[in-house]
């Protein structure tokens, strides 16, 4: 489902003497349907960079990233928009929302974007929020004032509201208590069972051991620093 071939990434800092920072060379990785692969490596090894390249946030210097049969490194913006809408979900560490929008609508939005009617989308969003123990009295409020853990659970509810065939998870269990952590791990196992291909970053080792089939140490793709 996800296939990465000979992927390289560098950043050119035009305003700092055009310094070129080579952060990744020759990354190879593939993830089958129903499989969950963990990215590991020390902080700064390039885990998040790789995730962002897969999602199309970062521009690859060279190489390929196939999601299904689409090559993200060469796709047009509108194709990536469609890919994100239908195929590729991303649970980031931070919730970014339009202020004032009620939590239930934030969670329902991915379903509205693929054309589901507001009633169905809302119903499914409420189901997800309930599953993640967000108290019902908060559903009509904007999540901008919620606690860190609550925001993260809203983010997860949003990421799991549509059954994406491919999912990227950036620290989905960080800042969660034991009960909610368990629920999130169940959701991940559920997604695998229905055939989703998942790439995740988990600092929580027990969680990683439980849901991940393989680990890839990203530091072996570390860039060769130009002299």
């Amino acid at each position: 489902m996800i296939r990465i071939e000979n992927l390289c990434k560098s950043f050119t800092l035009h305003n700092q003497g055009s310094a070129v920072i080579q952060v990744m060379t020759g990354a190879d990785l593939s993830v089958a349907q129903g499989e969950c692969v963990a990215l590991t490596g020390v902080s700064g090894a390039g885990k998040s960079t790789l995730m962002r390249m897969i999602y199309g946030n970062y521009v690859a210097a060279s190489g390929h990233i196939f999601i299904g049969d689409m090559d993200v490194t060469r796709a047009l913006p509108r194709d990536i928009i469609r890919l994100r809408r239908e195929t590729l979900g991303y649970v980031s560490q931070f919730l970014r929302v339009v202020p004032r929008v009620p939590t239930v609508d934030v969670v329902a939005e991915p379903l509205r974007a693929i054309g589901q009617d507001s009633e169905t989308a809302r119903h499914r969003a409420e189901e997800r929020l309930a599953r993640l123990n967000i108290p019902e009295r908060l559903w009509s409020l904007s999540p901008t004032t919620f606690s860190g853990g609550e925001q993260q659970r809203v983010n997860i509810a949003r990421g799991f509201v549509h059954d994406y065939p491919a999912l990227l998870l950036d620290e989905p269990t960080a800042s969660l208590d034991a009960v909610n952590r368990e629920i999130v791990l169940d959701l991940i196992e559920g997604a695998k069972a229905r055939g989703a291909a998942i790439i995740g970053i988990f600092h929580d080792e027990a969680a990683r051991a439980r849901v991940c089939d393989r680990e890839i140490d990203v530091s072996r793709f570390a860039g060769v620093q130009a002299a």
Partner: peptide, 9 residues
């Protein structure tokens, strides 16, 4: 390009 790509990278 894509909005988040232009802003993030």
């Amino acid at each position: 390009g894509l909005t988040d790509q232009v802003l993030d990278d």
